[in-house]
């Protein structure tokens, strides 16, 4: 009935490797080294997401809650709460381990260590750290997802530089953007 190939009628052999020891649940490592280091001193100055020159990232520190639209050309580190939309097309956006973001993020590079509810679009790469939790679609040429990351949503790959072109399509839940290129990936 199934027209199985000759070998198909045989149950697959499992070639389990011997267990090397008891189950060792992985603990979330500390913040990944690629994330900008949080300021050593608490930052409670008003965030200036769109006014600071590139070089050091603007920071929304833990304890701050921001609503609105973020735009500009500076890197942004979010360890507080942000809602609205974040459009920093040439910059890097990092959501720190305490960060809670409810916004679509459009950036050159996105690193998530905390929680994001919204669509992510990066022209270079997206990385989800081990403690991250993302609910939304991801559109980028490169994606790295570490063990322990949680993602509820759609992942689509673009050619480098194409993310902007398909931005509109990437916003909708039912968008149908054909993946264009084998994606370089980070080791899991």
């Amino acid at each position: 009935m199934w027209n199985k190939p000759a070998e198909g009628n045989v149950s697959p052999q499992s070639s389990n490797t011997p267990a090397r020891g008891p189950m060792t649940p992985k603990l979330n490592p500390p913040v990944a080294s690629t994330a900008p280091a949080a300021p050593s001193a608490p930052v409670f100055s008003p965030p200036a997401a769109s006014t600071v020159a590139t070089g050091s990232p603007s920071t929304i520190a833990a304890g701050l809650r921001i609503h609105g639209e973020f735009s500009g050309n500076t890197d942004l580190y979010i360890d507080g709460e942000a809602q609205g939309s974040i459009r920093l097309g040439q910059s890097k956006v990092t959501v720190g381990p305490h960060g809670r973001v409810q916004a679509d993020i459009d950036a050159r590079e996105i690193v998530v260590e905390g929680r994001v509810q919204g669509n992510l679009k990066a022209s270079e790469s997206i990385r989800l750290g081990p403690g991250s939790h993302v609910q939304g679609s991801m559109l980028t040429p490169r994606v790295a997802i570490e063990d322990g990351a949680r993602l509820r949503g759609k992942v689509e790959m673009t050619k480098p530089g194409d993310a902007r072109r398909v931005a509109a399509a990437g916003q909708g839940k039912s968008s149908e953007v054909v993946p264009a290129t084998p994606a370089p990936v980070a080791k899991e």
């Binding site: 989800l128 997802i145 509820r152 689509e156 993946p179 899991e188």
Partner: peptide
């Protein structure tokens, strides 16, 4: 649970992947 390896496997072949950790949810 989302896996880089599985995502990459399908995406490199031109598929689009949605992921939802159903048991955890």
């Amino acid at each position: 649970q989302v896996s880089q390896a599985t995502l990459t496997f399908f995406i490199e072949k031109g598929y689009r992947v949605s992921t939802e950790d159903f048991l955890r949810s």
